[in-house]
Design a protein around this nucleic acid. Sequence first.
RNA 1: GGGCCAUUAGCUCAGUUGGCAGAGCACCUGACUUUUAAUCAGGGUGUCCCAGGUUCGAAUCCUGGAUGGCUCACCA
Length: 495
Amino acid sequence: MEANNMSQKEDLIQSRYDKLKELYDKGCDPYRGEKISIQNKSREIIDQFPSTDNKKVTVGGRIVSKREHGKATFAHVQDSEGQIQVYLNVNGVGEEAYGIFGLTDIGDFIGVEGTVFQTRKGETTVAVERFSLLTKSLLPLPEKWHGLKDVELRYRQRYLDLVVNTEVKDIFILRSKIIQEIRDQLNREGFLEVETPMMSPIAGGANARPFSTYHNALGVNMYLRIATELYLKRLLVGGMEKVYELGKVFRNEGISTVHNPEFVTLEVYQAYADYLDMMELTERLLVELSKNVLGTTVITWKGEEVDLAPPWPRVTMMEIVKEYTGLDFASIEDDRHAREAAWQKGVKVSAQSSWGEVMAEVFETLCEENLKGPVFIKDYPVEVSPLAQKNKEDPRFTSRFELFILGNEIANAFTELNDPQEQRKRFETQMSKREKGDEEAHMMDEDFLTALEYGMPPAGGLGIGIDRLIMLLTGSTSIREVILFPTLRPRDGQV
RNA sequence: GGGCCAUUAGCUCAGUUGGCAGAGCACCUGACUUUUAAUCAGGGUGUCCCAGGUUCGAAUCCUGGAUGGCUCACCA
């Protein structure tokens, strides 16, 4: 290719390939896979100064900036903890090595050995005595000063986002701590972590459209799971009394700032417990979580602040609907009057909607986003809770609650329905909805019903959308900021 | 899926009324042994997202499309 018709991009890359060739010519292979001993981290050396002054250290990382001054060069090396300046000169490393260093670019990985000192301006720096070029970078990194802002590139090429926008990594470190903390707490309380199938012939446990796939050897269609619930309850039947699963579920729905097709849920089941026990568990879990991970129970999200200090109020859905809309469902007799009341408030409900469905719809439309919380909304209508136990006092409701914080639904829990005949009726109602075109209605799960027929102990169950919880705890306003590789439309045949 | 907005150099962004395609960083050449977004002297490297259309002339106006963002609807 002629040099004069090369594009800028080709030119930038070509100069790096040219340097690579020169390195090979000098006997330096920057892909030799050399294992080196790196004893120190950038942050440790800087934080512990002056006790590290004049100490010999070894650090490794990516060159992120370079300032050449003829026979001396300053550069910053970025490792997992931060950045540290390194200083090389001809006297320190020798003529030949200095020449090799001249062939490095921003983005290359190096390992250095040297002694710590402070520059005139007081920056802790490593005076390099020996260095190793560990990996050559052949593509230019995004700019150091403005970083990478193009959100599409940030998600498609998250590795660049992580290299250049250092605060991004902090979110994922926090994510890891949150998940670790949840595990620690549940394990401490005697829960057993289990793994149930992600692929199965029936996708149950939630109102959602599944992804479908095909198993060649078995010759059967399968679905990716939309919830872990029904398998976990089979474990209660099997005698496991305290179980939880933390894992991905998949829902074939739209993508938005609060929806990713694959996301992580936590589901917890405890035999001989009920939804009130689950409330206490939820409260304990989240308060300990925020204390241990954030160091405070006060969380800020979208400019709003809320204190998670317990206890959290418990309000029935009927009460909260009355409080926010003035509609008193206690005095609304039947389905028709309920629908008319909703229409008057401008809430869209279908002409087939029942009393309970209307109340839930009114709640979701007019109340949810106003619930700063933390607040437990309890006693959900039975029509919208096909897996929950009916309330003893009022069979229109179930022993179920959801937790709201700053308008976000964080947890969903109930006393589990363990009556196989009642559960069959609930599934049948769902099936008739499916037949009317509701693709999100639950599927009939005969094997699950069989399990219930053998007997499932009374139990409380809890579900938490982990990604949304992490959004709340990290102050993120988009779910894509807390998922390393969010689902995107494939481009140019790539993932 | 609907509405609104965006797409210009590797990155971050300007681009006037339709009149030669711009800046900073990065990069290349040279100088420089403690710099701090190092400095100094040179160098612009481009499918203006794509395809049509209007026009003497389009990054700019029109139509269609692609991708993304926000938002509404549905969910967790």
